[in-house]
Design a protein around this nucleic acid. Structure first.
Lengths: 183, 183
DNA sequence: CATCAGTTTCAGAATGTTTTGAAATCTGCT
DNA sequence: AGCAGATTTCAAAACATTCTGAAACTGATG
């Protein structure tokens, strides 16, 4: 049997799902994954694999993969219903928490490896043919490293599990445009 | 004739280019585009299409497309050499300015259209069958809209042409972890 | 321990993106 | 205008990602 009793979705909900799906690329996830997340988010209900398959018209494999990936990203969790062997899934409801998880994941997956490569490049630039190397090149690599480290640090601060990122952001926005220089 | 006299590149430079290329997905551009940018950035020189083709071993069409796209993004500019009909390209050297351009482009291309869709969804949710609609659904759409608006505003503030984003970021990092709540 | 509902896996198919290369276009010079 | 070097375009090919569906697996139950 297919979906749990009455899983119907208003047309407007589906448009939300589609809009969110198109946004997938921004978050670095596939369209379907984003749609699955949107579906869980907008309904606010616990849905099972069959519900997702049916509503989004995707295959069982795809639904299973996407749900699992969302759980790995930490923005969807598994829940169980008493007396039901099926697994159900719910999306994190707090937008800021969703954002946190995504930012942290992406830094870990993408910025950190890049930084690792850049450290290697810097180390190769430094010791050996130090005299023959254009000092500007070193400076540029350094600048890039500094910038990415700043990004990672900011990400941690903003998106860290303890950080009240929202307030920080708000206060940042509220401040006046110019900030007194510290140098 | 191929590249301008002596365009040679140290092995370490190429590793920088590759590392940066892999990062392309984060910035939402293709690997090659990212590599072209990295090449221009790390050499700090003005290179012509042929230089890029040769160093990156890509086709003329691809080099042309990638360079043009980078110019569109505002992180590479065309320069001319007196007595030379060729066009040369240089990358913006300030990391923060590069970041600014990218953030602004991405907000314009990705967040703004999504927000537009969400406004439509909200408007569809409000007037007609207002009684039949789960109020929580409206709240969730609102929450998402608010969040994205905050993102766009933050992006503008941080990455705006006038904003001293770096100082803001630094001061943010320097602050103590907890910020007094404003409510 | 055989069965069954439910879940995951994975090779191949479908789809989407990027690259090529040659032809068309442009630009500035004589 | 006619030419020559430089650049852009674009259809087809190469490549990469995502999706499907059927088979394999899991683990609770009688």
């Amino acid at each position: 049997m297919a979906a749990s009793e009455s899983v119907r979705i208003a047309e407007a909900h589906m448009r939300f799902v589609e809009a969110w799906g198109r946004m997938g690329s921004v978050w670095g996830i596939s369209r379907t994954m984003a749609e699955v997340h949107a579906l869980l988010y907008i309904t606010g209900r616990a849905l099972c694999t069959d519900d997702v398959m049916e509503l989004l018209e995707i295959s069982r494999g795809n639904a299973s993969m996407s749900l699992r990936a969302l759980v790995d990203w930490g923005i969807v969790s598994r829940v169980h219903k008493r007396g039901d062997r099926k697994e159900y899934f719910v999306a994190e409801q707090d937008v800021w928490t969703i954002f946190r998880s995504i930012v942290r994941q992406r830094i870990k997956r993408e910025v950190d490896p890049l930084l690792a490569s850049l450290y290697e490049v810097r180390d190769d630039l430094a010791p050996a043919s130090a005299t023959r190397t254009d000092p500007d090149v070193k400076a540029r690599v350094e600048a890039m490293i500094d910038f990415l480290e700043l990004c990672a640090a900011l990400g941690d601060r903003f998106a860290g599990p303890t950080g009240p990122g929202l307030q920080l952001a708000a206060s940042l926005l509220a401040r006046n445009h110019r900030v007194k220089r510290t140098d």
